[in-house]
Simulated assay, not measured.
Amino acid sequence: MQEYTYKNGVQTCEDTVTSAPSVPVFRQDLEAPLAVGSHVVFSGTPADDVQREVNGQLHVNFSNWQARFLLTCRGGHAPSVRRSPRLYPCRVTFNIGAGDDVAVHVDARLPQRCVVRNTRRRGAWGPQETAAFRPFPFASGRPFVVEALVGENDTLWAVDGLHYCEYAHRNPSPLAAAPGSGAAAAPLWLELIGARDVSIDVRRGEEYPKLAPPWPEVPSRRDLEAPASRDEPSWPPNARALLPQGVPPEHQLVVKGRLRALLHSFRVELTTGCQEWPRPDVALHFELRAYFESYRPRQLVVLNSRSDGAWGEERRQRSAAMIPSTNVNYILIVTIA
């Protein structure tokens, strides 16, 4: 699985998110607590026109917006700074709160092109998380639909129908007010900051991502060297596809790709569904873990399967000798019992 990380250049400045009244804030109190399977849908557009006028002067909220400054020097006069009239939206923030705390804080920062996740408890922020499964999905002026699925141990986040990241529950958890959680009930609320045309919908989820596009089918070729047909899809990183008839007898599943320059890991799975939740059964889990004891001449390959949410016993072997930044072919021979 390809993983994107945007750790460099990320500032620890969550406390400035709600510091200025000019930032649009949409908050919704929850009448019923969140539970496992709760599905929250945020929609809106990153606001690009937030400004306010005080005593005839234009003031820009710099906690949520970035303005361009120009340095000018005329003759022997001291340099002067003037602001360009164009405003740049800096962040869109999604919060799941529990009482006075923030159980899940998801902050999309447009200048750094990263999405930061965190939790605030008793006024103190924890360590940030920034790794994601896809490139940065937000853009100024472009509408978005963000899905959040509350699981037993984590919260899953999708943008425009594609899974983006997951965030393990901390203290407090978004399930803090759920019956039987073992903790004192805390009123929950949802918040979306820095967007316009906002809507928030909460319901029971049956599948996540609910807004996922139709998945393509794995094409069939005569042999390994046969050229691709015109109707074959263009495969993005972290691709998913359907095998409506499974792997036919006397056929092989071939995966082609190019390894990353900084090879960490990747996996190929045959599952009973393309959704992220409920977790599908995994008939075959093939994972190359190049990060584990990377000094050794061959990389670790792990084989496993998952049924009813439980993983079996791993089979490990050091049989891969992958070279970063090279093209590879993986041939998975699937035997139907």
Rank of each mutant, 00 (worst) to 15 (best):
P174Y: 04
P174N: 08
P249C: 04
V115G: 00
A177H: 02
V159W: 06
L259W: 00
T130I: 06
L192E: 06
E293N: 13
W215M: 10
S220T: 15
D308C: 07
L288H: 07
R204H: 14
N171Q: 14
A124P: 00
S294I: 02
R298L: 09
Q112C: 08
K7L: 09
G9F: 06
I96R: 02
D223P: 03
A158V: 10
F144H: 06
F69L: 15
N8A: 11
P24G: 06
L149W: 15
P111K: 09
F144M: 09
C114V: 12
P187M: 00
V50S: 13
C13K: 12
L270K: 05
A67V: 08
P213M: 05
Q245S: 04
V202T: 11
D100K: 08
S220K: 09
S305D: 11
R134Y: 07
H105T: 03
S325D: 15
A283E: 13
S199K: 13
N64Q: 13
S229P: 00
Q317E: 13
Q245A: 04
E250A: 10
T272K: 08
D100Y: 02
P324D: 14
C114I: 01
E225S: 11
R82N: 04
T72I: 14
V106M: 12
D100L: 05
A185V: 09
P237T: 12
Y295V: 08
E276I: 01
F292W: 14
S234W: 02
R196A: 10
C114G: 09
R318Y: 13
I193V: 15
L87S: 03
V54P: 05
D201P: 02
Q252A: 07
T130E: 07
D100T: 02
R68Q: 14
A20S: 14
N118E: 02
R52I: 06
P135I: 07
A108F: 02
L30E: 05
H251S: 01
V40K: 11
L259I: 00
G37I: 01
N61S: 13
R203D: 14
A131S: 10
I200Q: 10
T18W: 04
F138P: 02
P209V: 06
P127C: 03
D160E: 11
R296V: 07
A239D: 03
L190S: 10
V268T: 08
N118K: 01
V302R: 08
V92A: 10
R68C: 07
E217R: 14
V328T: 11
R27I: 03
D197P: 01
A158F: 10
D160G: 13
S307H: 13
D100M: 04
Y88H: 11
S229K: 09
V17P: 06
T335S: 09
G141K: 10
Y167W: 04
N171M: 11
L70D: 15
W235M: 01
